[in-house]
Each structure stands twice: as structure tokens, then as C-alpha cells.
Amino acid sequence: MILGRVIGQCWATRQASRLDGQKLLLVQPLAWYDPDHQADHLVCVDPVGAEVGQDVVVCMGLPARLAAGDTRTPVEASIAAIVDGVELYPDTAEGPAFAFAPGRAPETLRQNPGAST
């Protein structure tokens, strides 16, 4: 899964029939793990009910298709959770500067006292 922020919504009139009734959200990834996949935006189906501005956890692949209701749905990313808070342990990585590009730290980021930035 990856962390992302909902930055908008997508609408389509003509679309694959299995996408009918799915809410499509535009998500800006805050951190990636798969270099083959890397892009500055991602369109996700939303079975959870996220809103613009919220940070979310995005699930990719087959489970995302399942979340959209059916493994035959042409979907590759789905909102799995709405983030309440993120805590970074100060001594484990080089702080959020390493983890998140400038301006891309989660809104709800909470750092331990004494953490480096």
C-alpha cells in the first residue's frame, strides 16, 4: 500500500461498464515503493468515502479490484483507509525529509519530540 492525498475527483461518461457507479478520486502519492509504477498522480476507486484534502492509504492490484466489487473490474488502485495520523520514529530513518518530498508530508504527520527534520 502507499500513502497518498486526495487532490480531486474524476468523472467519465463513457467508461467500461464495470466502472459504472464507482467514484473515481485523483490521488497524489506521498511515497512510492515501486519504481516501475512511479507517477505523480493516481486515479483510485473509492469504496470508503474519502474527501478532497484527506490523506489516504491506497491499495494496488488484485485486492483493489476485489474492493471495487469483482476481480474482473478494470481497476488497479483503490482507497483502503482514511488516515487519522502518521507517526514517524525519529531514530529509525532520516526524518520526514527523507521519507517525503517537500510539500508531500502527510497532513496528519506527528513526529516524536526530538525528531530531526
Binding site: 500513502l3 483503490s78 483502503a80 483507509a81 487519522d84 529509525t92 521519507a99
Partner: peptide
């Protein structure tokens, strides 16, 4: 991949198939 546990993510509103699972942030 190999990674370091670098943080935690809390979420109350989750998709039902993810409910009850602890989410952590891992830095590769």
C-alpha cells in the same frame, strides 16, 4: 524487500477487508 520500520499509520475509517489490521510505514 528489506526495510526499516520508520513509523505508524492510524486510520479509523477503513475498507471492511482491511479492518483490524495494524499499518506501519517501512522505508526500503
Amino acid at each position: 524487500i528489506r526495510g526499516r520500520v520508520m513509523g505508524e499509520v492510524w486510520a479509523t475509517k477503513k475498507a471492511p477487508r482491511l479492518a483490524g489490521r495494524k499499518l506501519i510505514l517501512v522505508a526500503e
